[in-house]
C-alpha cells in the first residue's frame, strides 16, 4: 500500500485535480460572471466607530483600509468606469488616517491623487488640502504636509499666492530642507513657472514612495509636453508670418521645414493641430491629459 507507484499516481491525481479545479474556476468566471453589485459602499464611514470596534487593533484596521485604498485607486484607474470613479478614495483615506493619525504615506498619497484631475484622479484638490490639514493637526511639525498643500495649490488649482503662503510655512518648520525657502520666494514673486515646478518635481522624484515618484515623473512629462506645445505654437505663428496664412495640417509645417516630422508628445501620442482655432493641443487618449492649468501660455 505504500509503494512508490501508487504514491506517484496519487500525487499526479492531486496535481490533476488542482489543475482541473483552476480551469473550472476560470471557465465559470468567464462564461457566467456574477452580476456586479453596482452599489459600492462603505458600511462604516466613521474612523472613531471603527476604532472602537477594533479595540486595540486600530492600527491594523488602518493598514487594512490603506490596502483597500490602494486597491480601489489602482482598480478604478485601470477601469473604464465613466461615473463614480474613485468615489471611495476620499472616505477610505479619511478612515485610514482617523484610525492612524500618524499615517504619513496616506496623507501624501491623498495630496497627490485626490487632487489629480480626471481621468487620473477624482479632481478634488479641496479634499486633498483638507486631508493634509488633518495631518498637520495630528503632527504639526511635519513640513511635508505644508509643502504638499502648497504643491496642490501650485500644480492643481493655480493659486500661487496660497502656494507661496504654504511653502513659507513649510520652510519655517523643523527639519525643512533649504530649497523650500527660495521656492516660496520665487512663487511669491513670479507666480507659477516651469523652472520652479521642475525643481519641485525633481525633489519629489527622491521620495521613497514609488507612487509619489511615478506622479512626479508624469508631472515632468507634462512640463515637457507644455514646452513642446509652445515650440509647435511658435512654428504655427512663424508659418503665418512667412506665408500670410495658417497651415492646414502638420504636413504644411514639415514641408516648410519648421518641424522635422509628425510631432509626438512624451508619451508617444501625436499632438493635434486644430486648423480652425490654429491651436496645438494634446492628442485624444494621451495619458498626459489634462495638462496643469497654471503653466499653460
Amino acid at each position: 500500500m505504500t509503494g512508490a507507484k501508487p504514491t506517484a499516481f496519487g500525487i499526479l491525481a492531486v496535481v490533476g485535480g488542482l489543475a482541473l479545479s483552476a480551469s473550472l474556476l476560470y471557465a465559470r468566471d468567464h462564461r457566467y460572471p456574477p452580476p456586479p453589485v453596482t452599489q459600492r459602499m462603505l458600511y462604516v464611514t466613521s474612523g472613531s466607530v471603527v476604532g472602537r470596534v477594533m479595540l486595540t487593533f486600530d492600527a491594523l484596521a488602518a493598514d487594512v483600509y490603506w490596502i483597500r485604498t490602494i486597491q480601489h485607486y489602482g482598480r478604478d484607474r485601470k477601469s473604464r468606469l465613466q461615473s463614480g470613479r474613485f468615489e471611495l478614495l476620499e472616505p477610505l483615506l479619511d478612515l485610514t488616517t482617523s484610525l492612524d493619525p500618524m499615517f504619513m504615506t496616506a496623507y501624501r498619497f491623498g495630496a497627490i491623487f485626490l487632487s489629480m484631475a480626471p481621468p487620473e484622479g477624482p479632481g478634488k484638490p479641496e479634499a486633498a488640502v483638507a486631508l493634509l490639514e488633518k495631518g498637520l493637526r495630528a503632527t504639526p511639525d511635519r513640513w511635508q504636509y505644508a509643502h504638499d498643500i502648497g504643491f496642490v495649490h501650485y500644480w492643481q488649482t493655480g493659486d500661487f499666492t496660497k502656494a507661496a503662503d504654504w511653502f513659507e510655512r513649510a520652510a519655517r518648520m523643523p527639519k525643512a530642507p533649504s530649497w523650500i525657502g527660495p521656492l516660496a520666494a520665487t512663487t511669491r514673486a513670479q507666480g507659477g513657472n516651469r523652472v520652479g515646478a521642475r525643481q519641485m518635481l525633481q525633489e519629489l522624484l527622491t521620495s521613497p514612495e514609488a507612487y509619489i515618484r511615478q506622479a512626479a515623473e508624469r508631472g515632468l512629462l507634462q512640463l515637457q509636453a507644455l514646452d513642446a506645445i509652445d515650440f509647435l505654437q511658435a512654428a504655427v505663428d512663424e508659418y503665418f508670418r512667412r506665408h500670410g496664412q495658417y497651415p492646414a495640417n502638420w504636413s504644411d509645417l514639415v514641408r516648410a521645414g519648421l518641424i522635422p516630422a509628425l510631432p509626438l508628445d512624451p508619451s508617444r501620442v501625436p499632438f493635434v493641430y486644430d486648423a480652425t482655432t490654429h491651436h496645438v493641443k494634446l492628442g485624444p487618449g494621451s495619458p498626459l491629459a489634462p495638462l496643469p492649468q497654471g503653466f499653460q501660455r
Binding site: G17, L18, L20, S21, L24, L25, A27, R28, Y32
Partner: peptide, 15 residues
C-alpha cells in the same frame, strides 16, 4: 455559475 462552482468544489476537495 452554480454548477461550475459545485464542480470546482468537487475537483479541489477531491485533490
Amino acid at each position: 455559475f452554480v454548477l461550475h462552482t459545485i464542480a470546482y468544489t468537487v475537483a479541489y476537495a477531491a485533490a
